[in-house]
Amino acid sequence: MRQAETPNRARPRLLIHPGRFNPVRINSLGAPTARHVRLSLAPGCTLYEAIVKPLAGIGIRNASLTILGGAFDVLSYCVAPPDPSGQAVIAYTAPIDAGTAYMVFGNATLGRSLKGEPLVHCHATLRTAAGELRGGHILTEDCVIGPQPISALVTSLEGFNLQQAYDPETNIPLLQPRKEQADD
């Protein structure tokens, strides 16, 4: 059992990360307005392609997405238990194949990877082929959209970038908002 119902909640615990504590705890950037797009995730494409390609075509490189429910031919995810190596406090598991599964609801962030390529970070609730509800970090390049298009609401972020960058505190690369540079 990984859950417990208690009348009085336990004191929240803090974790000690491997790197130096960064005094900036909320790193935010804003824009005067957001641009919205309704995106149909195309059948047969990977989730990654279905997000990245059409948005690149209309000039959207940074966005938050709400993915509405839909069927996948392949849905693959992982979870994040403690890292046995101690390099970070957690590490992703090997891929877990949910099979021909249904995504109940998901959120995704589109940004840029360390290499400057499109990066999609996605978490979702899903129903496996066996009918069990599960959730985790979605492996977007391995997931294949099922026979029907899946709707997504895209909130485009303009005037700044979401850039994956090494985070010394947690010792892993993370998406961070960054003001546009002249060479972006």
């Binding site: 929240p12 974790l15 909320i26 790193n27 935010s28 307005t33 700044f160 505190e169 908002p177």
Partner: peptide
């Protein structure tokens, strides 16, 4: 109506709701 938009990365050990 909708106004401005903001994106944030919130760091470890901060409380979700308060952040």
């Amino acid at each position: 109506s909708m106004g401005r938009v903001a994106y944030a990365r919130i760091a470890p050990n901060e409380d979700l709701v308060h952040a």
